[in-house]
Write a protein that binds this DNA or RNA. Structure first.
Lengths: 198, 198
DNA sequence: CGCCGACGTGAACGGTGGTTAACATCCCGG
DNA sequence: CCGGGATGTTAACCACCGTTCACGTCGGCG
């Protein structure tokens, strides 16, 4: 999809500003060791500056994480709306589009996937609420499609289904790179699709 | 399966000693907020003592986490060996047994599931290596069964499949309790089985 | 009874790490 | 050319937290 990994953070993908470099480096480090275990100095060093230089670009370390998670959530939600709209009326086609989108995102942004579900708890109550709202809306897009595919299933059932599919697709950071990207995409797509229609 | 949640930590399930109480409370707190964000005072308070009292039972906070993760990994591996042996020679039956086992474990010990894949990085290199070795052996049990079911698939392929199935089944902590335990078990089992044989 | 080990407490210590302050550098617009 | 804003650096500050210490209590056992 895009050239560099975890590029979903970039607002303008042209030439990454120092600010974007920091966000991307932080995402990688946070994914590897957890946000609490990564010092400001580590993030700075990763982009060639000292720790306090971060504060020229972000109000705090927490603000960094908050912006990171908010951007991911917003991007996912916007993407879901996009691909569902483009898929037409057929629920099966909509599901296929959602799966393809999530698979692409997971393969392109493994670090963001990891950080998003690990460091949500490190956010302030306010930021966490906002991220959770976006995530919930994203899940609802899936639930709507799954409900159309399983008319007899309850909403709670569809929600659990959606989370199970996320878990399946987002497993990519765990099985790191032994398979080619295309093979991985094909495998995950096949498994997710059959699991969704079970 | 067992009465209290995340009871897989208990060595003797009879009357939990103070030591076991601490481990279980710590597991819950670690799962909720991450081990780095939980102070020893928090763990102590959760069992009705002050922070330093912890050191009457554990050498350090890290040792607590290490024992927690080691126990989980050992228990999973032993369980896998058990159920595979009991399932006979049929790969399909073996897979069904593994799935049922993992589903039961995930539903019984949501906190442990969360901690295991979130706080591995907080361990010392030595402890982390040990846990990873056990986890790898557990994965290999799955890979062996999946390879028997998919003779044409490569080992890397089967490994990715296994991780995907773990992600699917271990999604339970995310879709918390809107569904009954039995409904959840049935749903996850069905999805995992169809995804595995796709 | 009297000792001793198990268990717990409050106080103190020390390192780590986020954050700020004070001071340079560089570049661009007037 | 000069001034100011953007960007960095080093040093210092301060809060938090894991850990240790000195002390107290209590229950069992010789």
């Amino acid at each position: 999809m895009t050239a560099e990994p975890d590029s979903a953070l970039h607002t303008d993908a042209a030439r990454p500003s120092r600010r974007e470099q920091i966000l991307q480096a932080a995402a990688r480090l946070f994914a590897e060791r957890g946000s609490r275990s990564v010092g400001v100095d580590d993030v700075g060093a990763a982009v060639g500056v000292t720790g306090p230089a971060i504060y020229r670009h972000f109000a705090s370390k927490d603000a960094m994480l908050a912006e990171m998670l908010l951007r991911i959530s917003e991007r996912l939600l916007a993407g879901a709306d996009q691909v569902v709209a483009d898929a037409g009326e057929d629920p099966a086609a909509q599901l296929a589009a959602l799966v393809a989108f999530q698979v692409d995102f997971a393969l392109d942004n493994p670090a963001l996937i990891t950080v998003q579900d690990r460091d949500l708890g490190a956010l302030s109550d306010d930021d966490a609420r906002q991220v959770r709202r976006l995530q919930r809306r994203y899940v609802e897009r899936w639930v709507a499609v799954l409900a159309a595919l399983h008319p007899q299933a309850s909403t709670a059932d569809c929600r659990a289904r959606a989370h199970a599919l996320f878990g399946l697709i987002n497993s990519t950071p765990h099985s790191a790179g032994r398979l080619s990207r295309s093979a991985m995409a094909a495998l995950l797509t096949a498994m997710a699709t059959t699991a969704a229609t079970a």
